[in-house]
Nucleic acid binder design. Sequence first.
DNA 1: GTCTATACACCGATAGAC
DNA 2: GTCTATCGGTGTATAGAC
Lengths: 196, 196
Amino acid sequence: MLGTPIRDRAAERRATTRGEILAASWQIAHEQGLSQITLRDVAERVGMRAPSLYSHFASKNAIYDAMFADAWSACLEVTNATVARAPRSPRAALKLYARTFFDFAVSDLARHQLMNQRTIPGFEPSAEAYAPAVASLDHLRESLAALGVRRREDIDLYVALVGGLVDAQLANDPGGNRWGRLLNRTMDMYADNLGL
Amino acid sequence: MLGTPIRDRAAERRATTRGEILAASWQIAHEQGLSQITLRDVAERVGMRAPSLYSHFASKNAIYDAMFADAWSACLEVTNATVARAPRSPRAALKLYARTFFDFAVSDLARHQLMNQRTIPGFEPSAEAYAPAVASLDHLRESLAALGVRRREDIDLYVALVGGLVDAQLANDPGGNRWGRLLNRTMDMYADNLGL
DNA sequence: GTCTATACACCGATAGAC
DNA sequence: GTCTATCGGTGTATAGAC
């Protein structure tokens, strides 16, 4: 009687190919911009013809969808690691959280555009791709709650403050630190406003 | 001897056609999104064939360029009118300036994307189109200076605060007021931080 | 299942007739 | 200045080889 193989070599190969397609897509996004990804270019980099990509992704937007999930999963991983070594002082913790997200966002323009802006014309993330994004926001809420920040408007303000610094940095001084310098001051200002 | 005509009817007609092309482009941007503008669609709305548009604009990006100048000119006009009726109190003036820009930005998503984000793949505003944008920033600097805000990092912080609220509002609650409600509080927080 | 070949409809842009 | 015709490029779809 034939037993079930331990490893599913076909599935492994399929997952590898999927990863290669995504890696090539990220490469193009970094080199030429997020919206400059073309199926023919992706296919060439992985040694295929363009239509063959449809064996692995249902459409070009499905590739963006997987990239969106990738990006937010990476964000969730980074912030998880940070919270584990959070300092006791609420202000210090606030600054660490904000700095972690700021550095993550500023370090990759294409990724930030995919995560936080709607720069791709017809693209809307699927529910599955949104899951790690929701998890990240939940995680942020828990982390802020542990510092005593629980009201929705306070969390909204935090989101706007950090997001505003990130957007200003990327839009007006990409590669620089003109707005990154203001991050600690902004968090002190925020903590003062909350009476922390 | 033939005198020069008082009115240049050909130039007037040309300017009118240009305006019609831009109006049609804004209409499409509002209905379908900024990146969904196609030359064939624009041409159809003004009663032309697509290639005829090249008699009035050198390229599709030249249309975006004129729209960019339009948008910042409108912003400059609105903020100019606001400063003229500024209250004496620095805090009240700060709130009025911020509210004016916030309402202007939030009222038109497509316009805001064109002005402040880089959502169109190959588009970079020309120097001429940038002029009203630079004038707006100069105008903001003068207005803030009159309130006692003169350091570059203080101005940078103001830009990030207002921009962050606008982006959060448009991205997470379009048509609502969830972040608009935080504008006055944010300006008080900012004024506290500056000791105003 | 995976890939190739081919095709379609649409895009921005250009050439040349009128 | 506007037209028709056309070009190379795009995302997408499908038939069929292996």
